[in-house]
């Protein structure tokens, strides 16, 4: 197994990308709701104070204000924690941003269980379902810092609403940063099994794929960072080529990427699909990765599900 890459902060990558964008595009403005130090937007605020608005702790209205600022075409970034950006603000995102086709880029940090110690109130595991259900919304889940940087530029360049979900935890670098909207990146080729993964669990997908390779199982790994629009051709190619798909996401399995993959393959090319993610529960306080393990996304669980799929294919004892 290759040496693990150094971990990088997705939030810092976002903040740095914003500063670059601010220099390149004088129209860009950034809003935050009293979490600028945590989301990464404070860097932009220090560099471009007249184009930075910390509107205070009011996420829903921040989204309406962002929409109003953007209706003439100005790109507006709005950041908060995922639970507030997607949850607290949901109907403002729906009506003020998506229905108005506003040019607002919501970049939400602290997505998923990896918030850890703060507990369930701050662990947003339903946001991808909420956001991908909105007409016209682009939904991105970068797996590492280079992808977070690339996604920031990509949503800036793409007119209309977008939601980008970042992890609070630093994550190992697993991509070459060549993220593109609508494309699934094949991080590892394989013929026996496909693992579709998003965000923080992409690294675990690669680790399990490497283990399986030691015993002769060839596993394709797709980084599904572009959740909407998603790469349907790459998904159906994987279904055809490998005949089984395992989905890893740090999100509720009820409405997340697993649900998307299962529905898409069932309609177009049915193959066995297993979903590893958060079951129908809230999280709790704890060390971030221990919590992820406890809630059903441990390496052991991922291995078990991979072997279950191989058994269903008749490729395992």
């Amino acid at each position: 197994m290759s040496a693990p890459s150094p971990a990088g902060s997705l939030r810092a990558a976002y903040g740095d990308a914003l500063v670059e964008l601010g220099g390149r595009d004088p129209e860009v403005v950034v809003l935050d709701s009293d979490l600028a130090g945590a989301t990464g937007t404070a860097r932009f605020g220090e560099r471009f104070p007249t184009r930075f608005f910390n509107v205070g702790a009011m996420e829903a209205t921040m989204m309406s204000i962002a929409a109003g600022m953007s209706l003439g075409g100005r790109p507006v970034f709005a950041s908060s924690f995922a639970v507030f950006a997607a949850g607290q603000a949901y109907n403002a995102v729906r009506q003020s941003i998506c229905y108005q086709r506003a040019n607002v880029k919501i970049v939400a940090s602290h997505g998923g269980l990896l918030v850890g110690a703060d507990g369930a109130t701050h662990q947003m595991v339903e946001d991808l379902g909420l956001m991908r259900g909105l007409p016209g919304m682009t939904v991105i889940v970068p797996a590492d810092a280079p992808s977070a940087r690339a996604a920031t530029f990509a949503v800036h360049d793409r007119p209309g609403p977008a939601y980008v979900r970042l992890s609070r935890e630093d994550l190992p670098t697993v991509t070459d940063g060549s993220f593109a909207v609508g494309r699934a990146a094949e991080l590892r080729p394989g013929a026996d099994l496909t693992i579709v993964a998003v965000g923080a669990l992409v690294a675990r997908a690669l680790a399990v794929a490497e283990e399986l390779a030691q015993v002769g199982v060839s596993t394709r790994v797709l980084d599904f960072a572009s959740v909407k629009p998603f790469d349907e051709p790459a998904l159906l190619r994987a279904a055809r080529d490998t005949g089984a798909i395992l989905v890893l996401e740090e999100h509720s399995v009820l409405t997340g990427v697993g649900a998307l993959v299962a529905a898409t393959t069932a309609e177009n090319y049915p193959v066995p699909v297993r979903r590893v993610g958060v079951p129908d529960i809230f999280g709790e306080s704890g060390e971030p990765w221990a919590l992820v393990d406890r809630c059903g996304m441990s390496m052991e669980r991922i291995r078990d599900e991979a072997w279950e799929l191989l058994r269903l294919k008749g490729k395992a004892p």
């Binding site: 829903a60 109003g68 600022m69 209706l71 009506q95 108005q100």
Partner: peptide, 29 residues
């Protein structure tokens, strides 16, 4: 989106004033 002369989509209450504040900030900027 559908009718010229309509500057904002509203209906769910409590959002229009936020959109208006954003428009006023944008005009100032």
């Amino acid at each position: 989106g559908t009718l010229p002369g309509v500057d904002a989509s509203t209906g769910g209450l409590g959002q229009g004033i936020g959109v208006a504040v954003g428009m006023a900030l944008d005009a100032r900027l």
